[in-house]
Amino acid sequence: MSRPLYRLAYLFAEGVRAVRTHLALAVMTGLTIAVTLLLLGLFGAVYHDLAGVAERIHDELGMVVFLTDDCAPAQRAALTAWLHHRPEVARMEETSKEEAAAAFASRHPESAQLLALLEENPLPASLEIHLDPAVTASAMTALVHEVEGFAGVDSVRYGKQWLATLLSLTRWLRGAGAAVGALLAVAALFIVSNQVAMSIYARREEIDIMRLIGATNRFIRAPFYLEGAITGLFGGVVAALLLSAAHALIGPLLAAGGGGLLVGSLDLISWRAGQVAVFAGAGALLGMVGCWASLGRFLKG
């Protein structure tokens, strides 16, 4: 066997041997990583869903441009072409006078006859505009003013007050979510590195002996990293399993009990191969970074 291959085989064998020898410590570290990832996963799911809810409400608000009855086709075409090129506009639905009447009749069948009694269809043609989620309240107001200036536009309806509140709420939610997420990630790293430090501390004599025999720091570190990766991998899979169990057990309870906005949160998490891989990878990374953060202090001097 060539020397690099031998080193690799040695590293793998040592990593596995260390996990087997210090199984209780490895399981403790793995479970710490699992709980940490579980918290991060639950937070991520809830955050993602709340942000999604805000975006959905925002999307539903949008704005409606009512056209005058004498709006010429050319004027209408100019307006729609201009709107299509606006970055604030995500998509647009056009409704003709006839379509508006049909929609009214289907929504209010009891009043449909009243509409038929009128000589002329009083409902205006309109453009329903769905906004890009990134648009600010001030950009929205500016857009409304510009649209109102177009020939053939009768009026523009939009939830001005609502929109401003919602946009600021969405921004706040994103900012707060990112801050809490970052704090959680730092706390996770701190907890895991301390757990790994305890595991390494229990083996400091072993490390001392390795150094006396002439092992380089790299030679000592490598199996620890692999051990960290293996325990982290285990923790990641356990976290994915627990999240999946949460999905199966709590999801229906939330739905039945009127869990409100949180109902959708757990839809994100379930026992899927991709998700397990992401959690296992995150766990392995966390285990290795924890090792890196803890090993330094034991290998000084």
Binding site: M1, Y6, A9, Y10, M210, I213, G214, A215
Partner: peptide, 11 residues
Amino acid sequence: LFALQVAGIGG
């Protein structure tokens, strides 16, 4: 074996 492995001798 560990002392030998440190010096790159194995197998």
